[in-house]
Design a protein around this nucleic acid. Sequence first.
RNA 1: GCGCCCGUAGCUCAGCAGGAUAGAGCACCAGAUUCCUAAUCUGGGGGCCAUGGGUUCGAAUCCCGUCGGGCGCACCA
Length: 581
Amino acid sequence: MSQTQTLYAAFTGHLNAALDALEAAGTLPSGLNRAAITVEPPRDPAHGDLSTNAAMVLAKPAGMNPRALAEALVAELAKLPQVTSAEIAGPGFINLRVAADAWLDELRAFAALGSDYGRSAMGGGSTVNIEYVSTNPTGPMHMGHCRGAVVGDALASLLEFAGHKVIREYYVNDAGGQVDVLARSVHIRYREALGEAVGEIPEGLYPGDYLVPVGEALAKEFGDKYAKAPESDWLVLFRQRAVAAMLTMIRADLALLGVEHDLFSSEAELQAKGKPAEAEKWLRAHDLVYDGVLEAPKGKTLEDWEPVELPLFRSTKFGDDQDRPIRKSDGSWTYFGADLAYHYQKAETADALVDIWGADHAGTVKRIKAAVAAMTGAKGKETPFEVKLVQMVQLLRNGEPVKMSKRSGNFVTLADVVSEVGKDVVRFTMLTRKPEAQMDFDFAKVVEASKDNPVFYVQYANARICSTIRKAAAEGLAPSGEALELLGEEELELIKIAAQFPRLVEAAAAAREPHRIAFFLHDLAAAFHSYWNVGNDRPEKRFIVAQNGNLTGARLFLAAQIGQLLRNGLALLGVEAVEEM
RNA sequence: GCGCCCGUAGCUCAGCAGGAUAGAGCACCAGAUUCCUAAUCUGGGGGCCAUGGGUUCGAAUCCCGUCGGGCGCACCA
């Protein structure tokens, strides 16, 4: 591993050393919690290059006046050779100015680390399993699924970059009633392929055309063998074939989006291995599952409801309003029953679990988290398990809501949207807002506005950089780190913004918020475009200054590194860094 | 009725585990192209951060209530 240390990481270290020194001198009590201390750029650049809240955070637990503590800290920090000024401001902020050399060193670090600039060891190599997409294998992906797919994929890349091992997993719900419905729907298409007039697809089955080829393939393979046969003869077979076909389709849709999983886990396989039964046994032994009778549903009247004894999980202990069955009255597993076994199994292969779910599953978060916590906790240490809820995407067409339902066959497919506006626009749009806020996605508007999409703004910055370097090369000029001291204030400003990438990666990874990367890239691109245009009025500020090869080399060096950073960030988002536009 | 999420500029959204004068894009107005890509830039107008309380040196950010919007509240998945 390189010795190169990035500037913010270095200053966090310097600050801790300064605090250690104060402790050693008896100025500061030892053992104070430093977790809330930050080193960040001040909001107003006029205040300096770096700012820390250390004195304000520590003053109270230390029983000291913030300004007095700040003065002691400033005395320590001022000793650092790269610090040109250290001042106390406001209620106790410490503002530092950093010598130009230190920023030029950071520019050299961009180059030395290249595509690894921003990579962090924060994760410590621990394994995080991220489960995302996991749509039922009953049809193509539609736009409602898209957000979770993009967010999960970008989060996976981000966590990898932040030092985790990542398993990207898709849970295939191939065991419930919906896949039987799928098999029956396919059976009709199969008969249709054999020449039978099947008419309208009956209510409750999947009417989509995408099942036609599946039926045709089965007709080709089996002839009319199952046309008149009872369901019990073909259901399992057709279910398997149909699920496999749907997964192929879904994977193709995901590929259009640039989303790829490491692992597809089958619910049916999980059940075949007896995992839910194992889980039930354990839960009963720990009094978390008991046989009981549910109360009649409130608020609605179900004619066929009757009290029956079921194995119930004590989810009321964890804030649920009702204990939840893990098996149905026919003995088969409920979704919840299989799901807790599934998560328990996942926890055996990872140090932490993250699920990306649609908000329509919010109601089940408490119980599954409780079950997983109980089961993994019994082994000594709970496996951290987070559920990130991705809010609904309201689909509109010219302002009118589009009701989507696979059952009705009425939906906007992901493939349609991607082919219309492109993968990069879809991904960037999904990643320029935090996932827990609802969003509207107006198909027409996005198509129309795709040319104004911020993604192009970021891509254009990289394309400009590439073009400049190409142009310079044609004139025999190349980036060079030889004379970086020729760079002035404007160039340093660009470096200062870019230098935040490492701390941003860590913050975004810790918060599991990939959208922060998207906003950072936009800011960096803005700084670059702005700098570029300075050259419009002042030709001496252009990248290529023909009469000054050293300066040109240094500016091209800067441009090349900014380009690298943009590419590092875009790679995390899964957006192409095009070289020409 | 209960649970979860959201409410910031006309619109779409940021606001980095409380911090200094609340930001960006779109839209609107006024400018910049003999010049490395104008898919760009510069400037301007526009905000009781839904609302009422609380916590503290300090709140858009944390806590409670209210209002408004969304999603759930099955032996479904």
